[in-house]
């Protein structure tokens, strides 16, 4: 059985950055036994050591505003060949992409990494989720549950999503 970790990123007190915690709230109690759920609102670098031995890392996070708030994207870093371009321009710049890059360099990155991202539009302190992002929460949670089920299926039964 593959070892799965679901990682929900974001600060619930910063508008659409609260997408990750909101999805985590939907997932809580619905994930199969043995699938870990981890929230992170702070330093992603802290989590790298925990990824050793994980087969599949499923992340959910808000993405930067690009004009389509609420748009859901799924990035399969193995299948799509996407390698986050690390941009360590600043000491505050250690985000998910840098953490994944560092984990790869250290040999700690899980073989499969899938990121579900929902484009945000408002990230003000103390603000709630925007209507567009709030409307996407259930859909993302369902997609992630389906993805977890796919990865948990015994090999040969069906291809992983």
């Amino acid at each position: 059985m593959k070892r799965l970790l679901v990682l929900a990123l974001g600060n619930p007190d910063r508008g659409d950055d609260g997408l990750g915690p909101a999805v985590a709230a939907r997932l809580r109690g619905r994930l199969p036994a043995g699938v870990a759920l981890r929230l992170c609102a702070g330093d992603v670098l802290e989590l790298i050591e925990e990824w050793a031995g994980v087969d599949v890392l499923l992340c959910v996070d808000a993405s930067a505003a690009q004009g389509e708030p609420g748009r859901i994207r799924r990035l399969d870093l193995a299948a799509d060949g996407l390698v986050p371009e690390p941009a360590l321009a600043s000491s505050h710049g250690f985000g998910l992409a840098e953490a994944l890059g560092l984990a790869r360099a250290l040999g700690l990155a899980p073989p499969r990494i899938v990121v579900h991202a929902v484009e945000g539009c408002h990230f003000a302190a103390g603000a709630p989720l925007s209507a567009e992002v709030a409307a996407a929460v259930d859909e993302v949670a369902e997609r992630m549950l389906a993805e977890v089920a796919g990865f948990r299926r015994p090999a040969g039964d069906a291809a992983a999503p």
């Binding site: 330093d43 670098l45 050591e49 250290l106």
Partner: peptide, 23 residues
Amino acid sequence: AIRMAAEHGERVRGALALKKAGN
């Protein structure tokens, strides 16, 4: 640091552990 980590992994992991302790 990411490029450095490939060859100095132990030091980078040590730094991550230090940072985690401070956090």
